[in-house]
Amino acid sequence: MTEVVKVEGVQKNFGKAKALSDVTFTIKAGEVVGFIGPNGSGKSTTIRILLGIIKRNAGNAEIFGKDVWKNSLEIHKRISYVPGDVNLWGSLTGGEIIDLFLKLHGGGNKERRDYLIERFELDPKKKAKSYSKGNRQKVGLIAALSVDSDLYIFDEPTSGLDPLMESIFQEEVERLKSAGKSILLSSHILSEVERLADKVVIIRQGEIVETGTLEEMRHLTRSTVEMEADGDVSAMADVAGVFGFEQDGNKATFSAEQQHLNEILLAAGKLDVKKFDSSPPTLEDLFMRHYEG
């Protein structure tokens, strides 16, 4: 697939403080990439560099094969962006602001705009100064989703939205995905990233610490096993690849390393197993592996 976004060894300093030391990842055509990390890890700085708002100190960053700093105006014609805190003109109504955004972008589908206003339950006649944070986010999302862009960049887009609106946003992202659009989704809601992303990029202290599909990343960590048997389950505690073993009568819970699953299953098979459930690690498990301590 064609690389829509290409970031290689990007560095950024603010004075003596190093915000990004080595950021490298790609987004292919039709791919949803989840970009995760805690506050201060460098997510928003990376996104601002991609948008041409700030200049990198080193490395390369391209969108549609063009340098993000030198060709930002041309690139912006083909992208939609929603920040984590949408600032609006207080004296204008939500509807007026959405129309202004669409006009500034140079297009937009008015039928889709009206559909999204209804779907996100936004009152477009109210002045923006009366909007809650959630409603300000809705204005940004409606404007971005009303434009037929090739790349959508969302930086904590559902901040302030209730769970129902979060679900609607996720459905809209799935629609974009099915239409072959490329999406960079930075979100603190890990379940949202897990549901939507084809690939996950984890950033820590300005460096990319892991990149890959969820399935690829799950091979690097342990599954959780819950089992019940007629035999003595304590025998499982000494099997290679078993960690964190806990026993409650004839039931046991433990973590299992992927490369030892065959040995674990063979050992369990000798105990007259009544139940054996293995759950792959969640994105939260993978995320916390990099941030615990």
Rank of each mutant, 00 (worst) to 15 (best):
V5W: 00
K6H: 07
V7H: 01
V7E: 00
Q11Y: 02
K16Y: 08
A19T: 02
L20T: 01
S21D: 13
T24W: 01
T26G: 03
K28Y: 07
A29D: 13
V33F: 06
G37V: 09
G37R: 09
G37E: 08
N39V: 05
G40Q: 10
S44N: 10
S44P: 03
T46P: 00
T46C: 01
I47G: 03
R48W: 01
I49K: 03
I53Y: 12
I54F: 06
N60T: 14
F64Y: 07
F64Q: 05
F64D: 03
G65R: 07
V68F: 04
K70D: 13
S72I: 00
L73R: 12
E74W: 04
H76Y: 06
R78N: 15
V82E: 12
G84E: 12
V86H: 09
W89Q: 13
G90Q: 13
G90F: 12
L92E: 08
G94A: 08
G94D: 04
G95D: 08
I97L: 15
D99E: 14
L100T: 05
L102S: 09
K103D: 13
K103C: 00
L104N: 09
H105A: 13
G106I: 06
G108Y: 04
I117Y: 08
L122W: 03
L122R: 05
K125N: 15
S132C: 07
K133G: 07
R136T: 05
V139C: 09
V139Y: 06
G140H: 02
S146N: 12
V147N: 11
D148H: 11
D150E: 15
D155W: 06
P157A: 05
T158A: 13
T158M: 02
G160L: 07
G160S: 12
E166R: 15
E172Y: 12
V173S: 10
E174Y: 04
L176R: 13
L176E: 12
L176V: 12
K177I: 05
S178W: 01
S178R: 15
A179S: 13
G180N: 08
I183N: 02
S187D: 04
S191G: 11
V193D: 04
L196I: 10
D198V: 06
K199R: 14
I202V: 15
G206W: 01
I208L: 00
I208M: 00
E210F: 04
G212A: 06
E215F: 08
R218T: 06
L220W: 01
T221L: 10
S223P: 01
V225Y: 05
M227S: 09
D230M: 09
M236K: 07
A237K: 14
D238W: 00
G241Q: 09
G241F: 03
F245A: 11
F245H: 11
E246F: 01
Q247M: 11
D248Q: 14
D248V: 02
G249L: 11
K251P: 01
A256R: 00
A256L: 06
E257V: 07
Q258A: 13
L261M: 15
N262T: 11
N262D: 14
E263Q: 15
V273C: 10
D277R: 14
S278A: 15
F287A: 07
M288G: 05
R289D: 11
R289P: 00
E292T: 11
E292L: 12
